[in-house]
Simulated assay, not measured.
Amino acid sequence: MPAAISYRPRRLSRVTDRVMRLALWGLALAFIAVLAVFVGAILKQGWPVLNLGFLTRMPETLDAGGGIKPEIFNSLYLVALSLAISLPIGLGAGIYMAEYAGQGRILRFLRLCIETLAATPSIVLALFGMIVFVQMMGWSFSIRSGAVTLALLNIPVITRVTEVSLLAVPRELKEASYGLGATRLQTILKVALPYAATGILTGLVLTAGRAFGESAILVFTAGTNTSQTFPDFRLTVPGETLSVHLWYVTSDGTLPDAREIAAGTAAVMIVVLLVLNLSVRFLDRFIRRRTR
């Protein structure tokens, strides 16, 4: 009798484990199916529009047949500038919070500030950027106004990802580094950061993808126009991006081929994000091989 009693809970736990495993597999497959339908629908509508002329022509304001050449450049340029501003700040803040701040009021206050900034809607940041950078500082609708405001969106994400990744570093690795005579800074640079590189890199991909698809901030700060010079690296010119162009084309309604341009623009954004994610995955494997 005791053996039969002990056998039933084991059998029940095995059945529960199998049911939960099937349920989780079902959720994962459902997520993949939704993603495939979403990406497939966008590419199905936009792929016929994609050609060399569409990618290399300047946009039109009234006539059909315009391209998205400056929008592609502005999107990548603004993401690069915003990351160049936010990465040192967010990385430094994350290192300080994980390694130097300790457990106390200062750390709790910093986390409150970071979480508040991360939870701020992008439209609020857009209004802040327009009031401060566009109007008060006189930068007008320009690439520098959009890049700085976009950096405010990136900083809390990079900071939090850096802190969490560094806190996940095993204590034994740090103690071994200290035991060999390394200083705290040397341990952070030579041990902690390489170990946490994959997590930080994943956070950077999410940050870059969010910045690449942002539209509200850039409508209010970078504007809805492009420079007639290509490529134009000046920070004082307007910088309409792909997401802003997609919004403007669908809302303005003056272009006869607005539907085709919007579909092609959306397809280009999806392709760029897929290439970015795949590139980071290869880079992640390379870093793991080097750190083993």
Rank of each mutant, 00 (worst) to 15 (best):
L117M: 15
L117S: 12
L117N: 10
L117K: 09
A118G: 15
A119S: 15
A119F: 09
T120K: 01
T120M: 03
T120L: 06
T120P: 00
P121N: 08
S122K: 10
S122E: 12
S122V: 07
S122Q: 10
I123V: 15
V124D: 03
V124W: 02
L125E: 00
L125I: 04
A126C: 11
A126H: 03
L127K: 04
L127C: 08
L127I: 11
L127Y: 09
F128A: 01
G129D: 03
G129E: 02
I131P: 05
I131R: 12
V132C: 05
V132S: 10
F133Q: 02
F133C: 04
V134W: 01
V134I: 09
Q135N: 11
M136Q: 15
M137F: 15
G138C: 15
G138I: 13
W139H: 12
S140P: 07
S140C: 09
F141A: 04
F141S: 03
S142K: 05
S142F: 13
S142N: 13
S142Y: 07
S142Q: 14
I143H: 01
I143W: 06
I143F: 13
S145E: 10
S145Q: 07
G146K: 04
G146Q: 12
A147L: 04
A147I: 06
V148C: 01
V148K: 03
V148A: 05
T149C: 00
T149S: 03
A151G: 08
A151Q: 06
A151K: 04
A151W: 04
L152Y: 07
L153R: 03
L153I: 13
L153S: 07
N154S: 15
N154V: 14
N154Y: 06
N154K: 07
I155H: 04
I155P: 01
I155E: 03
P156S: 08
P156Q: 09
P156E: 07
P156K: 09
V157E: 03
V157N: 02
V157M: 13
V157W: 01
T159G: 04
T159H: 06
T159N: 06
T159F: 07
R160Y: 10
R160T: 14
R160K: 15
V161R: 09
V161N: 09
V161L: 11
V161E: 12
T162M: 10
T162H: 07
T162W: 03
T162C: 09
T162L: 09
T162A: 10
T162Q: 05
T162V: 14
V164A: 14
V164M: 11
S165M: 13
L166V: 05
L166R: 02
L167T: 13
L167E: 15
L167S: 14
A168H: 11
A168C: 10
A168L: 12
A168R: 14
V169C: 04
V169D: 00
V169K: 04
P170S: 07
E172H: 14
E172P: 08
E172W: 10
L173R: 06
L173T: 08
